[in-house]
Amino acid sequence: MTAERHQQHDVRLQIAGVALQRGFRRLVTDFDLTCAPGDIIALQGPNGSGKTTLLRALAGFHTPASGRITLSRAQGDEIEEQGEVLSFLGHQDPIKAGEKLIDQLRFWADLCGASRDRVTEILARVGLTKQADLQGGVLSAGQRKRAALARLLLEDRAIWLLDEPASPLDQEGRALLGTLLDQHARRGGIILAAVHDPLPGVVARVLNLGTRESEVAA
């Protein structure tokens, strides 16, 4: 355990009046949310209700039609660069088929400025020690998701945005995900996850992004 691991995160996330649009379709209007350190939020809703778009807007990939997303530290100073405090785990896994898994994680360590020494230890934590020298192309969907989780641990950012993190994972993988989420929240991290099933192992605040029609249908 490094000293760095015990350090508490102290980032807050504030979403005020955000509206999201895809093409001509309004997905979300007047969305407000405040997250304090330690919050775990499960975004639920039918397909196409804007869960992924909301996560991508928070990561800065998508520009909201209106509203404001603010990241700030406990002392009150605002954070301009999302990349300093935020990790994104999308439904695609950025794994290259023709490169060894360990090399890929070393690359991510270099890119985010993390120590290369932690790579082996983190691979052990997500249960991929045996796969370290395998090419990315032969990994199964679940193993790829575990590798993406390893990247999250490596980056060590305060806010985790997870898009369907549990979907390809087996029972053991889901338990692992639960442990990681719990540890992250205890350290003051914020987790926002788009899910269909409840997040494993943790108690999350559930937010429904359902459209009006779908609520009637349900």
């Binding site: 990561a59 800065g60 990939f61 660069e81 999302q82 990349g83 300093e84 935020l86 990790s87 994104f88 999308g90 695609q92 896994d93 950025p94 794994i95 290259k96 991510w108 890119l111 985010c112 400025g113 990247r151």
Partner: peptide, 17 residues
């Protein structure tokens, strides 16, 4: 194109570089 398809580009945009 390859980076865009597999999400590597998303991660690179989040890097502080």
């Amino acid at each position: 194109q390859a980076d865009l398809e597999d999400g590597t580009l998303d991660q690179m945009l989040l890097s502080p570089v």
